[in-house]
Write a protein that binds this DNA or RNA. Sequence first.
DNA 1: GCTGGACCCCGTAGTCACTACAGGGTCAAG
DNA 2: CTTGACCCTGTAGTGACTACGGGGTCCAGC
Lengths: 145, 145
Amino acid sequence: MVAISSGRGRGPGYTIGALGAAAGVNPETIRYYERIGLMPAPPRSTSGYRHYGEAAVRRLRFIRRGRELGFAIAEITGLLNLHDRPDAPCGEADALTREHLAQVEAKIADLQALRGELARLASCGSKSARHCRLIEALEEKGCCG
Amino acid sequence: MVAISSGRGRGPGYTIGALGAAAGVNPETIRYYERIGLMPAPPRSTSGYRHYGEAAVRRLRFIRRGRELGFAIAEITGLLNLHDRPDAPCGEADALTREHLAQVEAKIADLQALRGELARLASCGSKSARHCRLIEALEEKGCCG
DNA sequence: GCTGGACCCCGTAGTCACTACAGGGTCAAG
DNA sequence: CTTGACCCTGTAGTGACTACGGGGTCCAGC
């Protein structure tokens, strides 16, 4: 969490490590984002070090947050484009969100069903695994091709 | 969903394509599972075609179901080992089951938090991206580095 | 002034769980 | 006997990183 301006740098801004600390992202990941075009290439010092400003921190936090919420890189790119055009209609982002919500809800329902099975199995009183129903729990629902 | 026995084969059982259809898994994926040792290598016809029986269908459905629920291949391997030794002591089964139960519960909690975030964002009332709640949320909540 | 260690650079390769070719061989129906 | 759907192998690509090797840079402390 050390920006160049606070301590060891010669100018305002962030090295890649400071940016990573400020945004909660691994420096290797930042370089990767630059490679794939998700983060713009920043200016460099004479020795080749990347130098970032506050805009980079904001953009990177936006990306990290999106990833935490399960959005794919391509989707985040879309959201960033949307963000960069503040008069664009919001329906796009709205649709993306609802789609994710549906997926997440389906997965929760699925896992809750399995949790029921596992909870039942966890108190299995028999002496051997033969009578446990874990296999069945997984098998029974796999019949719908 | 066409087993060899129903139509074109010369014996009972499934080709890799029929097995894939029966279990809801891509044939390429089945070959991959064989390569990594998750599915056993089946007997082959003289021309080299893989031939599977019902046990393979059950095993593959089990795997698919586990994968759908977010278990890693290594975890599924553990569950299958348990399955393959029906006389394994129940303590072992219990331990494995409880371990998976804990994982499932953690995953549910995770997804529920995510659902809360997404639900809050799901119906953006504004007309333009400027006021879109998703964009705002991504911008503003990334502050905890 | 010099050294040490933390940081930075680049490129490549590895991870996980697939998925998609390319370039062939096989099989049964028409 | 041809057609076309299936099968075979092996390799390479995907997404989103992460790790590694082999270097260069920077600056606090001695």
